[in-house]
Amino acid sequence: MRNMNITKRIGIHLVLMLLIVWAAACDNGKEQAGQVQSDSASSTATTSDGSRQQTEGTDRKPGNEKVGSPEQKRSYTHNFGTIEVSATPKRIVGIYMDDFLLALGVKPLTQTMYGKRHLPYLQDRIGDLPVISPGGINLELILEENPDLILLAYPTYAQEGRYELFSKIAPTYVFTGEDNWRQTLLTVADVIGKPEQAESWLNEYERKVAAARDSLKKAIGDETVMFIRFTRAERIQIYGGPSNFSADVLYQDLGLKPSELVKKLAWGEENSAPVISAELISQFDADHIFITYDTPTNEDAQEFKNHPLWRNIPAVKKGNLHEVEMFHWMNDGPIANSMKVDDVLKALLK
């Protein structure tokens, strides 16, 4: 184990006794993959002249303040408290924040698991790092990594006294999961002292999607699109909008047109990803259907692919069914979204 203040280590190991209670609580919680969002809580930063700046929620524009020397501390207030961080923390644990950190050129100390599986779309960037499962977070592993900063994607990871456990290891910032991914990226970049990298990444992404919109408009015009997730026979979801981690890319960034069924069943803030029954398959009216399978080789998935209703809908008969990889389509980080754009272009620019 790396060198660490003995008193701090003893205190942390004592609170680790609470892990039994914590693990039981985590197992009962809903595993959240994707849709990583940012904190709408207020934040304050110390500027180079020593003054304080404070803004509320998504009105905050991270990166506007000037980062000073490495010794300078900046404070950030979120829903669980206030933290102080150095200008550029080096050792960072980010639970379900891997995508955001890697987009900013920062390799975290650990990698987040999706259930019991790695996130394959990040493996070439993240390598063989120690794994963290949100369903039962190993605090002792995090302690051994000796981080300067911990980022938690969702409040559920910090509730029921768990925030205090994280805070005994390192300053911990908790996101609310409510803001869009662009704001999340800006907030992460601000907290870790890399605002320029976030602005650069977003500018490049906007150039990419602007070019993609033009190409897609020429290729398919007003043809409609829908996105479906197949988890198991009794859990088929149709994803709508106007905002979630597929709609943001399909219908906002790329300007594609949702089908009438999408707008009827899955449009609105309250129910943008309803579970539907197989009986509705015959009503699938989109010109192009993107579909992802949680486990494409299992028996349920194979039966679904061979379902007579499924095989006879217009998009399938025309060869406009596009299978996409679940892990990045069900995540909402900047890298995942950029890969979705690539998938759409590959599918629709024939």
Rank of each mutant, 00 (worst) to 15 (best):
A219P: 08
I220K: 03
I220Y: 00
G221Q: 03
G221F: 02
G221N: 07
E223R: 14
T224I: 05
V225K: 05
V225T: 08
M226R: 09
F227N: 08
F227Q: 07
I228D: 01
R229C: 05
R229V: 07
F230K: 00
F230R: 00
F230H: 02
T231R: 10
T231H: 10
R232G: 10
R232I: 08
A233K: 14
A233V: 07
E234W: 02
E234V: 04
R235T: 13
R235Y: 04
I236L: 07
Q237V: 01
Q237I: 01
I238G: 07
I238P: 02
I238E: 06
I238M: 14
Y239L: 15
G240E: 10
G240D: 06
G240H: 07
G241C: 10
G241Q: 07
G241R: 10
G241W: 11
P242T: 13
P242Y: 07
P242N: 09
S243M: 14
F245P: 00
F245H: 03
S246Y: 08
S246L: 12
A247E: 12
A247M: 14
A247F: 15
A247L: 15
A247H: 12
D248L: 02
V249D: 04
V249Y: 09
L250C: 03
L250G: 01
Y251G: 03
Y251A: 05
Q252D: 14
D253Y: 13
D253W: 14
L254K: 10
L254G: 06
L254S: 04
L254N: 06
L254Q: 14
G255V: 11
L256C: 00
L256G: 03
L256F: 04
L256Q: 05
S259Q: 10
S259L: 11
E260H: 15
E260L: 15
L261S: 03
L261P: 12
V262K: 03
K263Q: 13
K263G: 07
L265G: 03
L265F: 01
W267F: 06
G268A: 06
G268N: 05
G268L: 02
E269C: 01
E270D: 11
E270R: 07
S272V: 03
A273R: 12
P274R: 00
I276T: 02
S277I: 00
A278T: 13
A278Y: 02
E279I: 00
E279Q: 11
L280V: 05
L280S: 11
L280M: 04
I281K: 01
Q283D: 13
Q283R: 13
D285T: 12
A286R: 04
D287A: 15
D287I: 13
H288V: 03
I289H: 03
I289K: 01
T292A: 08
T292I: 00
Y293D: 04
T295H: 11
T295M: 12
T297C: 14
N298A: 12
N298D: 15
E299Q: 15
E299Y: 07
E299I: 12
E299H: 08
A301S: 15
Q302N: 15
Q302C: 09
Q302G: 15
F304I: 03
K305L: 13
N306H: 11
P308F: 01
P308E: 00
P308G: 02
L309S: 14
W310D: 10
W310N: 11
R311I: 10
N312D: 15
N312K: 06
N312P: 04
I313T: 12
I313K: 13
